[in-house]
């Protein structure tokens, strides 16, 4: 009995670690599909629409990568992961990349052997409560029951926040955003805490969003971005520069509407290099010259993706804030394409 248990454990380990070595780009090309780890459903970031197509801000990154590498933004296989399973799924090779509002932290980058290739959304942890509780600050939450997704950084921030402020709370651990929403609406918890963007997205799906407020305190820095496995620099660069291409496109005014025009050649050499009309930047990463053009065509530039999925005209209604371009007082900044 002991032996069989050990054998089982090792089989498991062997399976987990079995597929993680070869070059990801070759794997993806051979497969003809990018396996992209997404959440189990956060409106605006990654959720299937009425026809079952995945849509959202994070999904757009996957599609851009697929377009850059395979030439078709539809060639993505979306794999749903929970807060608990996401990094194992990535480490084991089940997915090629994560685009799943995951926070970039030191220990995840180093201890978990992952690489965060950039930040597509600068976020912070917030609290949402029902208006009728009459609470206006997170400092008044002493003794509250708090719904929290397990396996997240928010879980640790929450513990720190209550400890530092000398307050007690009752954590209700929850696996997915949908369960948290259900528990919160049934008032089995007073507070739901996660990234402020996630709160806004969740609230937008309520029948009565006006009855819920997001408290002003933002208790942490949550830089969210796509993640790849540590050790495959080529693949990491592809995902990183795809993201930067989207940001740079917004900065240079390249949109899905005018990209065809721009690709014929412009007076700005940076745009020309990026879109492949000048030089051959794509070859340096093992891609063709038009990779960035296809990535931008997939869903538009960073600003367009933001506006269509989570921007102020959508039900989620997030302002650009920190996520505005550096030229407009935000933090989104792409290194030069040179």
């Amino acid at each position: 009995m002991k032996k069989s248990a050990l054998l089982g454990a090792l089989t498991f380990a062997g399976l987990v670690a079995g597929t993680a070595s070869a070059a990801t780009l070759d794997d993806v090309k051979a497969r003809g599909e990018v396996n992209c780890g997404v959440s189990t459903g956060v409106n605006g970031f990654s959720a299937p629409d009425a026809s079952g197509e995945w849509q959202g801000f994070d999904v757009a990154v996957c599609r851009a990568v697929a377009a850059a590498v395979l030439g078709d933004p539809k060639k993505v296989k979306f794999v749903t992961t929970t807060g608990q399973t996401r990094f194992t799924a990535l480490a084991s090779g089940e997915v090629d990349m994560l685009a799943r509002n995951s926070t970039w932290t030191y220990s995840r980058d180093n201890d978990l052997k992952l690489d965060f290739v950039g930040v597509n959304y600068y976020d912070g942890q917030g609290f949402m409560v029902n208006k009728d509780m009459g609470i206006s600050s997170a400092k008044e939450l002493n003794g509250a029951t708090v719904c929290i997704q397990t396996g997240t950084t928010t879980e640790l921030n929450l513990a720190d926040f209550f400890r530092v402020n000398n307050m007690s709370y009752e954590p209700v651990p929850i696996e997915t955003n949908a369960e948290a929403q259900q528990q919160y609406l049934a008032r089995a918890c007073d507070v739901y805490t996660t990234d402020a963007s996630g709160l806004a997205a969740t609230r937008a799906a309520f029948a009565d969003p006006e009855n819920h407020i997001i408290l002003p305190e933002i208790i942490s820095k949550e830089p969210l971005g796509p993640v790849v496995r540590h050790g495959d620099n080529q693949w990491a660069d592809i995902v990183r520069w795809t993201l930067y291409a989207l940001v740079a496109a917004e900065e240079y005014g390249v949109t899905s509407a005018n990209i065809e025009e721009m690709a014929k050649g412009t007076t700005n050499p940076e745009i020309n290099r990026m879109l492949g009309t000048e030089g051959d930047l794509g070859a340096m990463m093992g891609l063709d010259a038009k990779w960035a053009m296809r990535a931008i065509q997939a869903g538009g530039n960073y600003g367009e993706i933001f506006a269509t999925n989570i921007g102020e005209s959508t039900p989620i209604g997030l302002a650009r804030g920190l996520n505005a371009l550096w030229t407009q007082g935000g933090l989104q900044y792409a290194p030069p394409f040179r």
């Binding site: 050990l6 380990a13 062997g14 670690a17």
Partner: peptide
């Protein structure tokens, strides 16, 4: 058993 242990060690090493 030896193959499984070997494989595990090798892959853990590959992952660093």
């Amino acid at each position: 058993a030896a193959w499984l242990v070997e494989n595990t060690i090798e892959n853990l090493e590959a992952l660093g």
